[in-house]
Simulated assay, not measured.
Amino acid sequence: MAQEKDIVLIYFEDKPLVFARIEQILTDIKPDWYHVKLLLLQIPLQSVTWILRNAYINGDEFTMDGKRLRLELIESPDDTDEFDGTGEKEETQNHKQPEKGKVISFQSLRKK
């Protein structure tokens, strides 16, 4: 089930339309209905609140003004790199760490 802070992809008439973050899910006065506040991740940012059933939050198709919509939960891609617990990646046999590059100061690039 999609929860607060999850990212969903909103489909409009079977076409992906926009990504959104679920900001808040509050119960409605009607059983099994919820007020779902979405932050649409587009320019400009927009916040909307839809009243949806639990099944619709979980990906079932629904309609608004006769138009078909559905939410699809977006899962973060697997990160196969291993970390050693200190925030640094462990070097594995198949993955060698790249050599460190030269740091360029933005201060030195400023026009005088």
Rank of each mutant, 00 (worst) to 15 (best):
Q42A: 15
D81I: 11
K89L: 08
A20K: 01
Q97E: 10
M1V: 15
P31D: 14
K111D: 08
E13T: 08
G59H: 08
L38Q: 02
I57W: 13
D78R: 10
Y56L: 05
P98Q: 02
F12A: 13
H35I: 00
R70K: 15
F106G: 07
I25H: 09
K89V: 09
R53G: 07
V8H: 00
E88W: 14
N94C: 05
E4N: 03
Q46E: 15
K37L: 06
D79A: 11
V36Y: 00
A55M: 08
I29V: 13
I43G: 05
E72A: 08
L26M: 04
N94P: 04
D81A: 12
S105H: 08
N94F: 11
L45A: 04
M64D: 05
E75K: 11
P44V: 06
T63W: 02
W33A: 12
I22C: 03
R68S: 10
E90K: 14
E82L: 12
S105V: 02
Q107S: 15
P77W: 08
Q3V: 08
G101L: 00
I22Q: 06
M64I: 13
I22Y: 05
G66E: 06
K100H: 02
I57P: 07
D32I: 06
V36H: 00
Q46N: 09
G85V: 13
A55G: 02
L41D: 01
E75A: 12
L69I: 03
T80A: 07
D28R: 03
R68H: 03
K30D: 12
D32F: 10
N94R: 06
L73Y: 05
A20C: 04
I51C: 03
S108G: 14
